[in-house]
Deep mutational scan, measured.
Amino acid sequence: TFELKGKVGKVVKIAEDHYLVEVEGDKWIAYSDEKLSLGDRVMVVDVDGLKLKAKRIP
């Protein structure tokens, strides 16, 4: 999973306390310091076990 750092994905679902992000065809649980919206493009900035930390990108 460490190779996911720096990869770009898309928010495909918003849950109460996390997001579901699709990166290279796989879906991952993600969290972010900022509020994300459905369809936002994100970059993986860190990997915490099986969770990704994501940041919105333009």
Results as ranks from 00 to 15, higher is better:
T1F: 15
T1H: 15
T1M: 15
F2L: 15
E3S: 02
E3C: 10
E3R: 02
L4W: 03
L4M: 13
L4F: 03
K5P: 14
K5Q: 14
K5R: 06
G6Q: 01
G6V: 01
G6F: 03
G6S: 02
K7T: 03
K7E: 06
K7M: 05
K7D: 04
K7A: 06
K7P: 02
K7Q: 06
V8T: 14
V8L: 10
V8W: 05
V8Y: 08
V8R: 06
G9F: 06
K10V: 11
K10H: 10
K10S: 13
K10Q: 12
V11Q: 00
V11F: 00
V11S: 00
V12E: 05
V12S: 06
V12C: 08
K13Q: 10
K13H: 10
I14H: 06
I14R: 07
I14P: 02
I14E: 11
A15Q: 12
A15C: 10
A15S: 12
E16S: 12
E16R: 13
E16F: 13
D17Y: 11
D17F: 11
D17Q: 11
H18F: 12
H18Q: 11
H18R: 08
Y19V: 06
Y19M: 08
Y19F: 07
Y19N: 02
Y19W: 08
Y19Q: 02
L20A: 05
L20E: 08
L20K: 06
V21Q: 00
V21E: 00
V21W: 00
E22M: 10
E22N: 08
E22P: 00
E22H: 07
E24V: 07
E24F: 06
G25C: 08
G25D: 07
G25S: 07
G25P: 03
G25I: 04
D26N: 14
D26V: 14
K27C: 08
K27N: 09
W28C: 02
W28Q: 02
W28P: 00
I29H: 13
I29R: 11
I29E: 12
I29S: 13
I29M: 14
A30Y: 01
A30R: 00
Y31M: 12
Y31N: 11
Y31H: 11
Y31D: 09
S32H: 02
S32P: 02
S32C: 14
D33G: 07
D33N: 08
D33M: 09
D33F: 08
D33T: 08
D33L: 09
D33R: 07
E34R: 04
E34D: 15
K35N: 10
K35V: 12
K35D: 09
K35T: 11
K35H: 09
K35I: 12
L36Q: 01
L36D: 00
L36S: 01
L36I: 04
L36C: 10
L36N: 01
L36Y: 03
L36R: 00
S37L: 13
S37Q: 12
L38E: 08
L38M: 10
G39K: 07
G39W: 14
D40I: 05
R41D: 14
R41W: 13
R41F: 14
V42P: 00
V42D: 00
V42W: 01
V42A: 04
M43A: 05
V44G: 01
V44L: 03
V44R: 00
V44M: 05
D46C: 04
D46I: 02
D46Q: 04
V47L: 04
V47N: 05
V47D: 04
V47E: 04
V47Y: 07
G49L: 05
G49W: 04
G49A: 06
G49H: 06
L50N: 13
L50Q: 09
L50V: 10
L50I: 09
L50G: 07
K51I: 13
K51T: 13
K51M: 09
L52F: 03
L52I: 14
L52H: 01
K53T: 07
K53Y: 08
K53R: 08
K53G: 03
K53D: 03
K53A: 03
A54Q: 00
K55H: 03
K55D: 05
K55M: 09
R56H: 05
R56S: 05
I57R: 03
I57C: 14
I57K: 03
P58C: 13
